[in-house]
């Protein structure tokens, strides 16, 4: 899978590339409007991460360019503005998602994963990980072909883990994923423990490979 990161903040772009690059994703980074336009016109990407404030041009016009040339690349806007107007405008112009800065890398990874999954028309909407399979449309989970009944939050957590395999996920990132932008209104995210504990228990009951590991002090990790 090819990902294009269009971001003028070098450090942030490098972090994204570092976090996302693995055997599955190949990341490219550009920081200028003109070069971004060239790349977009020349290649095809599975996902474009687009910062709207770029030197040399407006990120939104890149979106228009994509739309006009009938490109199917998925686009996630990453913006510092976090305004509803901008979000609506971006989504109207054909962006698939909108993520406000600052964000957790894990959140970005999960959004990319979800976007790419949606873009794959041929897929049967099934995520399979060894003995575990997730039916996206029906929102059902089964281990060894036996269905596991999860609450909505547990299901969301499982998908989040799936999008961040082998990554350490902090409690804050998990809380933010579950409660959205407003998680930072609270200082106590202990409820995350309860949800993860329940998820682990339910999966363990069906004998899954015990992939969810607790990392002392920081959070959790899905070890594949």
């Amino acid at each position: 899978m090819k990902i294009l990161v269009i971001e003028d903040e070098k450090e942030l772009a490098q972090d994204m590339v570092k976090y996302l690059s693995n055997e599955q994703y190949l990341c490219e980074w550009v920081s200028e409007y003109r070069i971004a336009l060239e790349k977009i016109n020349t290649y095809e990407y599975d996902c474009i991460l687009l910062d709207l404030m770029l030197p040399g041009g407006d990120g939104l016009s890149l979106l228009e360019e994509l739309k006009n040339s009938n490109k199917q690349d998925g686009v996630i806007i990453i913006s510092a503005k976090n305004s509803i107007e901008e979000k609506v405008k971006g989504l109207k112009l054909g962006a698939d998602d909108y993520l406000a800065k600052p964000f957790h890398q894990a959140e970005l990874a999960a959004r990319i994963e979800s976007l790419i999954r949606r873009k794959q028309f041929d897929s049967n909407n099934l995520i399979v990980h060894n003995e575990l399979s997730i039916e996206i449309h029906a929102k059902t989970v089964s281990v060894h072909n036996k269905q596991v009944n999860l609450t909505k939050k547990e299901y969301d957590l499982l998908l989040f883990f799936m999008g961040n395999k082998n990554r350490v996920l902090s409690k804050g990132a998990l809380a933010e994923h579950l409660s959205g932008d407003f998680a930072d209104m609270f200082d106590n995210h202990d409820f995350v423990y309860a949800h993860v504990k329940n998820l682990k228990r339910k999966l363990r009951e069906k004998n899954y490979g015990d992939y969810i590991k607790t990392i002392y002090g920081t959070g959790y990790k899905w070890e594949a």
Partner: peptide, 11 residues
């Protein structure tokens, strides 16, 4: 944003 991202990487 950078601090947050660096922390994620550090973890």
């Amino acid at each position: 944003a950078l601090l947050k991202s660096k922390l994620d990487i550090l973890l």
